[in-house]
Design a protein around this nucleic acid. Structure first.
Lengths: 151, 151
DNA sequence: ATTACTTTATAATAATTACACTTTATGCTT
DNA sequence: AAGCATAAAGTGTAATTATTATAAAGTAAT
């Protein structure tokens, strides 16, 4: 944990930003909830537990900053709120998501499944890919069996 | 054009919805701007040109209805607004997008490049895919050459 | 004519951003 | 090292923007 905080600190310093206590608290919340896909509001509330004096605007600004530095990814699953997701160590690509349309659960896929597809895009469309967002919508394992049962 | 309106009319009727004049006007705007990715507001303004008495809420409701019936796709490129995009005739999958981070242009890709990937998702994660969203962010052809020149 | 849909205009809500002001950190001068 | 100037960051609140809800009125079909 400390190690990752440290790395992020360095990433900030590299662009001459500082890891202020508020920013650190925010990053810690993100680290502690890596599996979730928290909204800005969620993060704000969690940060407030450890640092009650922090302001919502600061959380938003911190998230935006982290987002610009590609430390977190800002994602949007289509329900009016933006969610923020830490990039994994050394991952230079955005990970994929499986969103269940029944229960709303979100699963992450770390593997990069788009290598071939990106090659096609670059050669056939002349588009230089820098990043991608891939989300699948469908039924997760649990809801598949639940659906079968109920019919 | 009339043919496509007709088909959409039938799709609505099949679910016992009617193609009211307001809905038709909205659909016509979508058809006339198929290449664009209009926001609800954009659509509202365009619809207003031909049917000034229409209300914004109606446009929103129509778009939501069309979205539910999978006649249009609601997409989100990360700039706070939802955009609406007609599905192509007979396309049962969501098409992909190439968004240029320099000039903001959006190109569409009709081919389904995810067949193999979806198979992997289903077999390896047990997730039953129903739809997907795939967006690439990067540099379009024009901006690539522009960038080279300016350096 | 009654019933269920739709639409309209407007108000309400919710997420995000802008603003004016205060606090904190940093560097320079002595 | 102490004191001051400058810049960066943070705070609470107000403003903005997109979207949704609501109540009243209009349409259309049985």
């Amino acid at each position: 944990m400390e190690h990752r905080i440290d790395r992020i600190k360095k990433q900030l310093h590299a662009q001459s930003y500082k890891l202020t206590p508020q920013r650190e608290a925010t990053v810690r919340v993100l680290l502690e909830h890596e599996a979730d896909h928290l909204s800005a509001e969620d993060i704000y509330l969690l940060v407030k537990e450890k640092a009650p004096e922090i302001g919502l605007a600061t959380v938003y600004r911190t998230l935006e900053l982290l987002s610009e530095l590609k430390i977190v990814d800002k994602i949007n699953f289509g329900d009016g709120v933006s969610r923020y997701d830490l990039r994994k160590e050394g991952a230079e690509h955005f990970h994929h998501h499986l969103v269940c349309i029944e229960c709303g659960s979100v699963e992450e896929i770390m593997e990069d499944l788009l290598g071939d597809v990106e090659k096609i895009i670059e050669s056939q469309w002349g588009f230089q890919v820098q990043d991608h967002r891939l989300t699948f919508h469908g039924l997760c394992k649990v809801c598949q069996t639940a659906t079968v049962k109920s019919t």
